[in-house]
Every structure is written in C-alpha cells, then in structure tokens.
Design a protein around this nucleic acid. Structure first.
Length: 579
RNA sequence: UGGGGUGUCGCCAAGUGGUAAGGCACAAGGUUUUGAUCCUUGCAUACGUUGGUUCGAAUCCAGCCACCCCAGCCA
C-alpha cells in the first residue's frame, strides 16, 4: 500500500509495511469475522512508567484500529493493588496523550469489572469448573509438578460446589486471612502447559485498591481478568507480547466456559444485533533496544539508587525521559512503524531510534547558534560599539520557518574545537593565518593568537572580509564554516550533553551482575558557560532547536528560567568526519 | 529428557511454490555558507542446517542444530 504519489507533489512516499497482524486483520475484515469491527486495547498495569517498549504496543494497537475505522481502548489492568498507584495511572494517561493517541471513550479499568468477574466466577463454580482450594502457596507449588512432571490434584479439587460457593462468599466477605484460600479453575493438573494446571482465579488480599478502595479483599488474577475484560469491552483483537503465548489456551478456555449470552449482555455490545464474537489473543515480540535497559524493576532500581535523576531523567528510555530529552512524539511513532512487528525476538539498533529522531528534528527544528566551549574572537576591523543585525534563515530548506536577526559585533566567541594551532589532516576550520566562514556572516582571517602565561589560548585577533556577506570570497576558496555568537549579546546558558547510559549492548545480560558496573561515566556532561544567540529566548519560538553543527537541543521545561536557560542535547548531528 | 515459540545481509524486516522488497548502518561519488540535510551508486547466487517432494522451494515435508518463554496466590 502506497499513499501520496499524486503527480509527484509529495516527495515522501509513506507506506504501511506489511506485518502478520495487519495481514490477519485484513483477512478477518474480508471474512467479516467480527462484522467489520476492529477494536483493540492498550492494557498497562499501573505499576510503573511507560517506556519506549510500551510505545511499540501503543502505536500498534492504536494505528491498527484507526487504519480499519475501529477503536482502541485504554484499560488499566489493575488487579494487583499491592503494586499499583494512582500516580502511575496519571502518568500513563499523560504519556499516551503526549504520543498523540486518543483512546475510545472513557478510560477503562479492570477493577470496574470486579462485580461481573465475581458473578462469572460463581457461574464457573456452579458448573463445577472452579473450586475453592485451601492449599497455601508452598503446597500449591508442590502439587503443581514441574516442567517435566505432571502435577497432582488438590485435595479440595472435588469439593462440593455448594461448599465452594459458600467459601467463596466468605472469602469475599473478608472472613479469611490472606493466602488461606484461593479460587481455582478445574482444568487439568497433568497438562503439559503449566498454565492449565488448575490456575488461581482469585486470591485474598486485604489491601486497599487505588480505584475500589476497601470494597474488595479478593482480587482476580490476570489470566482470569484479562480475557473477560476484553470480552466485556467488545475487543476483537487482543494483542500482547510473546511471553503470554502459553496463556492463550487458558484465555480461550475461560471465555469458552462462560455463558455467551450473559457475556454479551454485560458487555459494551449489549443490545447489538450482530453476532457476538469472542476476542482472540495474538502475540508479538516486545521491543528490545541495544545499550538500553528496559526492565521495569531495573529502571526503578536506577531511580531509587539515584543513578539517574528520576523517571524523567533524559537518559531514561521512559516516555517521560525521552520527552524531557527533546524527542518528539512523531519521532517515536515513526520509529515504532519502522521497526516492524514480528514474532522473532530481536534487538533493534539504537541507531534506528536516533535516525527517526534526527529525521523529524531536521525537518522541524529551527536553527540557531550556540557556542558550547567559548573562545573569544576580536574582529579587529569592526568598530567598538558597532552592531550589525544579520538576517539568517531559521531553516535552510523551509523558508516558511522565517528568518531572524543575529547580532554581529566586534567581540564574538567561537568554539575552541573550531580553532587549531596545529590542525590534524583534513581540518577545515580556523588555523593561524587561515580563513574560515562565520556562518551567515563574513569570512574572517586569524591574524594573531593571544595566550596567557601558561600558554593557554585566550583570544584570537581576526579581521573580517566585509565583502563576503552572502558572497563568495574573491580569488580563493574558503571551505570551513563555523558557528559563532556575539559575546555581548549572547545569553549564558547551561547545556547538558547526554550520551547513552551503558557501555555494553545488553546491560540486562545475565552475565552482568550489577548494571552499575557497565554505566557510561560520561552519560551526562554539564556545561555551565555556553553562549546562545539571543533570538532563542526572545522569540517564543519552539523548545526544540538545532544548534548548528552541534546537534538538536531542547529547552528543559523544568530547570530553565528566563534568566538562565537550560538546554538538553537531544542528539548530535551525524558526523561523518573521521578527523 | 514436558509444553509453547523463533531462526532471511552487521541490525530491523517484507516474502505464504515461480526464481531474494524496503529501512538503519556502512562505503564511494555529487550538491551545500551546518564536515548536517539532500541526491546518486554499491552492499545476501543467498534465506540456521541436512535430506526429500517438485519443471521449479526462503516458501511444502522430515530429521538435526541454535536461541527464547513457562513451574507467582505478578502482569
């Protein structure tokens, strides 16, 4: 499928890559399997912050629905109150909106279905498909068997249903302590699939829930809840990651035992004339990125140990961190589209993400100049107090982004890296006696190098060729172009340079006993005396800029003040110079 | 030695019996007042492996190998 190629008006060809889930949905659509409906859901547990891996799932679920004129719900899978909180609920909603997606209708919660879930549980007991079990956790493990040996039936497996019904009611009423009883499905203790060995449906937890408070002291498990929640919401395609593959038989078993009519009646599709079709689970490989730690527990450990400044530290792979880093939602969406979807576990190269970020920022970030490591330059043939306001394009290819005035005067700064007394081979920047173009301004020649007593270069005395504004210098070629800022007009800024957090491709490898040992000591470098051109603060332009020849930067939304801007480097420019 | 999965270029990834898409990375040119962008070109006789079926196989069949997931009252 290719869109946008009418008469070459759009140079960019956007194609939606084929993947097995898209293909499956297209097939379902043409077969009329769900009566033309495509309804997905993104179902996070609110037990942490979302990261780039979740973005893959979010993009998948929302775009698949949108492509087919369907809907995507946001449902918090909140069946374990001991790990969850409202803080996470709020952050997740915020992140999804930031990414640019709108969920269908109200936010859903599995906990909103506790009543229905409970009555379906009673149904199962009445059909003798579930029983109340008094084995404790340790005993249950013994009875479960192992990967290679079958399990043994619980002594309570044949408990009369009335007794189970009674016990279940008392569990719900709070008569029993945590761990004393569970409700279990009655399936097959000898199943080669361990998930089918009488899985727990309900457990007792005297713990307040962030949504339901103290109303419940028994909570349904994931396996029991997820399939029914999907069915209640009229979900058609239930997408999840590969580790749930073995749970699919259980997903189908549970839904298969329930009364279809009652299910539909309790669902969003109640009253619908179309045939009620059960949702189906499809798995895909979760995103892995090299040099990146994705595990929630590990990310939390980095936050708690102070290794990073918080969940939104710009080095974190969390959506909050990427956002603060200056990564745009569009870049993340394009990245997620570009990596594809498959069932093979794969490790995506960080370079792919970086490419998506640069691609978006190159097109959309206005240019500006910022000198990170200032070296004073005196333009000797410029008069003291004289200021020229040079007009510069905000974008080299998009004049719609306008122009700005950049003050040029006798006292400037350039970056120390752009001057060398003894230049390496291929050096195109400023050298003693040499010439270089000041971007958007004049060609200057370095006439003299001033040093302090210990030999450090303190200032360059240069002369400008005033005939070179917008003109090529006559009779010679000047290859180098460097950026500059007026030292009198520039704004002193803090700039934070970020690099990858880890020195190894797989920081979560089992061979690494502690991730602290593979941290990149240079993942954050803070520069306190950078000088940025004044237009950046004057105009309420955007928060993302390309500082020419340095990279893409964004104004830190938390730490910046009008007196003292703080910039975060989102990413460097590509640098193909091997010097 | 149980069950469920996966193996196509350095990294993602299309491909579903008719003779290996695309992107990233990389390399070489060109344009360029960002060593950026952009443009052009190159980059798997080869699809884990061994056999088989077929006029024809990455695609079908069988065996083998490698890797991943599962023994929470987590999700």
């Amino acid at each position: 499928m290719t869109e946008s190629n009418s008469a070459g008006s759009s140079l960019r060809t956007v194609s939606t890559p084929s993947n097995y889930i898209r293909t499956m949905i297209a097939r379902d659509q043409s077969n009329g399997k769900y009566g033309g409906r495509v309804h997905t859901r993104f179902p996070p547990e609110p037990n942490g912050y979302l990261h780039i891996g979740h973005a893959k799932s979010i993009c998948l679920n929302f775009t698949l629905a949108a492509e087919n004129g369907g809907f995507c719900n946001l449902r918090f899978d909140d069946t374990n109150p001991t790990k969850e909180s409202q803080e996470y609920v709020d952050a997740i909603k915020d992140n999804i909106r930031w990414l640019g997606f709108n969920w269908h209708g109200e936010v859903r919660y599995s906990s909103a279905y506790f009543n229905e879930l409970y009555s379906f549980a009673i149904q199962l007991v009445e059909k003798e498909l579930a029983y109340v079990c008094s084995l404790n956790a340790e005993q249950a493990r013994e009875y479960r068997g192992t990967l290679t040996e079958p399990g043994r039936d619980s002594p309570d497996r044949n408990r009369p249903k009335n007794e189970s019904l009674n016990l279940l009611a008392r569990m719900k009423a709070g008569e029993f302590a945590d761990g004393t009883y569970t409700l279990r499905a009655c399936i097959d203790m000898a199943s080669p699939n361990i998930n089918m060995r009488d899985p727990v449906l309900y457990r007792i937890r005297h713990f307040a829930h962030h949504q339901t408070g103290n109303k419940w002291c028994i909570y349904p498990t994931y396996d029991y809840t997820h399939c029914i929640s999907d069915a209640l919401e009229g979900i058609t395609h239930s997408l999840c990651t590969l580790e749930f593959e073995d749970h699919r038989p259980l997903y189908n078993w549970i839904l298969g035992q329930l009364d279809l009519e009652k299910l539909q009646l309790a669902s969003d599709l109640a009253g619908s004339s179309s045939q009620y079709v059960l949702p189906e689970q499809t798995e895909f490989a979760k995103l892995k990125l090299n040099y990146t730690m994705m595990g929630k527990r590990n990310l939390k450990a980095m936050v708690d140990s102070g290794t990073v400044d918080g969940w939104d530290d710009p080095r974190m792979p969390t959506l909050a961190g990427l956002r603060r880093r200056g990564v745009t939602p569009a870049a993340i969406r394009h990245f997620c589209e570009s990596i594809g979807v498959s069932r093979s576990e794969s490790v995506v190269d960080l370079g792919m993400l970086e490419h998506a970020i640069r691609e978006d920022l190159d097109r959309n970030a206005p240019r500006a100049m910022c000198v990170l490591n200032p070296l004073p330059v005196l333009v000797t043939n410029m008069e003291e107090g004289q200021v020229q306001h040079l007009s510069m394009a905000n974008h080299p290819k998009n004049e719609n982004m306008g122009r700005r005035q950049v003050p040029f005067d006798r006292k400037l700064v350039i970056d120390r890296a752009d001057f060398a007394e003894e230049p390496p081979p291929g050096f195109k920047r400023l050298v003693p006696g040499g010439e270089v173009r000041l971007r958007g301004a004049y060609v200057i020649r370095c006439d003299k190098v001033e040093k302090d007593a210990s030999g450090n270069i303190t200032r360059l005395l240069c002369s400008a060729d005033f005939g070179t504004l917008g003109q090529r210098p006559q009779g010679r070629k000047v290859k180098g172009v460097i950026h500059w800022v007026s030292s009198g007009h520039g704004i002193s800024s803090t700039v934070r340079l970020y690099d990858r957090l880890f020195t190894v491709e797989n920081p979560e490898s089992s061979e690494i006993e502690d991730f602290r040992k593979v941290l990149n000591p240079h993942s954050l470098q803070v520069i306190e005396n950078a000088l940025v051109e004044p237009s950046v603060m004057k105009e309420q332009r955007r928060i993302c800029f390309q500082f020419e020849r340095e990279g893409y930067f964004c104004l830190d939304q938390l730490d910046s003040t009008t007196e003292r801007p703080v910039f975060n480097r989102t990413i460097t420019l590509r640098d193909s110079w091997s010097g």
